[in-house]
Design a protein around this nucleic acid. Structure first.
Lengths: 229, 229
DNA sequence: TCTGACATCAATGTATACAATTGACTCGAA
DNA sequence: TTCGAGTCAATTGTATACATTGATGTCAGA
């Protein structure tokens, strides 16, 4: 008898989903590097499944932009170029400002308080040196809170996808350049503008915030490309 | 001997790709209606393939937003709601304006001339009553020409995806409301502003152009939902 | 040495067969 | 009647086996 399972509606995860999560994680953590080929048979054996769920997972990951899947050639981890980072961050700035614009009026004091709580968690994590995992997660949770009342599900999905994707770059940034120094004060300032319900100023500031992060990362990448080549 | 095939690099399309095209076409043409379930076995038999490529095609179409794929429940054609149309067209306005902004400076007289040629084709098609297929295609070709120098591949891909997606609504619009009346003059005006290299005015006008189409379609959908329900 | 056709092999693409899940239906008990 | 456990069929999920493709290497001939 499966008492536990019958009590709460356990949603049976398919192997495809599990495989997708596993591979996604390894890509985001940098364990699978840019350009690296992902062999179906190897992944299948490692994860104890057949190649079918592996293939389907790779297709999903391709849709998320983490993987390139070419017919008869196989899948590779999506490569990073400075110009792509540039574009992605511009898109984020554009879309996130749009989300904020639609959400800001409807945000309540409760929302601001939980946003502030997230900020404190974030700062605490930074102080504790737990930049790696926590920052990306808490950072997007904070931003997400600000957009939570936007009622723009497709836009949010796009933004989340881009965010998850840029996490790779950000992580690299943190790892190699010693932390994203600007973030803390900027987040405080952004929150202040939101609390004041100053829509235009908040959106402008948000755009500058994201664009600033973009410039940091882009410069770093360009430097790396020069050294590498 | 396969002379023809050996001469030009024929790219062997996988069955998955063929199946995806077939289903996509049927969805865009309205042959598969919103909310309709897509049974893997039925599709497989109809297209003379096994269920594997059908499943993979459905996953691709889900990524394109044409299909919803729920684990253990199967795939259905994505449903349309007025609020989704609203959001999609807002996104298009935002992203296409961004593309135009980045492209406009670099557009040459040649580009304008081929854009104008496309406009004439479009008007000819309209006059000939060939609204259905031609309009969607020519319309996006015209817009695409204006964005062609933007060097923003990811943004363009997004826009193209949304465009292809909204084709369904537009088609419905044309079909049931008797044609998108405003387009011809608006396109001319937009082209004029672009030729004048008046970036801000052109982007503003483009946004109004797209938003106008949105309002038309949204009103229609709301009317239909009232009648239907 | 170079070229190009052919053989070979690793990897992907797909068919078939089987397992697992869902939802509808039945039926008996409260 | 109403509820819930249990069965069954339809459908999806996955393993296995086979087919096909593309890359590499070999070798004959110029």
């Amino acid at each position: 008898m499966q008492l536990i399972e019958s009590i709460m509606a356990i949603e049976h995860k398919t192997r495809t989903q599990l495989v997708a999560e596993a591979i996604r994680e390894k890509i985001l953590l940098g364990e699978f590097k840019s350009g690296e080929p992902l062999r179906q048979a190897a992944l299948a054996e490692e994860l104890n499944v057949s190649r079918i769920p592996v293939r389907e997972a790779l297709l999903q990951l391709e849709a998320e932009g983490l993987v390139n899947f070419e017919a008869h050639k196989g899948a590779t981890v999506t490569e990073i170029s400075a110009s792509q980072v540039d574009e992605i961050f511009d898109l984020r700035a554009l879309l996130e400002a749009e989300l904020l614009r639609h959400s800001l009026e409807k945000l309540s004091e409760d929302d601001f308080q939980s946003a502030e709580a997230l900020l404190q968690e974030l700062e605490a994590a930074m102080a504790a040196g737990d930049t790696q995992a926590a920052t990306g997660h808490l950072n997007s949770a904070f931003h997400g809170k600000l957009y939570s009342k936007a009622e723009r599900p497709q836009t949010r999905e796009l933004v989340e996808q881009f965010s998850k994707n840029s996490e790779r770059y950000v992580r690299m940034h943190i790892l190699l350049a010693g932390g994203l120094n600007t973030a803390p004060e900027e987040h405080r300032e952004l929150l202040k503008l939101c609390r004041a319900k100053n829509v235009d100023a908040a959106c402008d500031y948000l755009i500058r915030h994201i664009t600033g992060a973009k410039e940091d990362i882009k410069n770093l990448l360009i430097k790396m490309e020069e050294q590498g080549a």
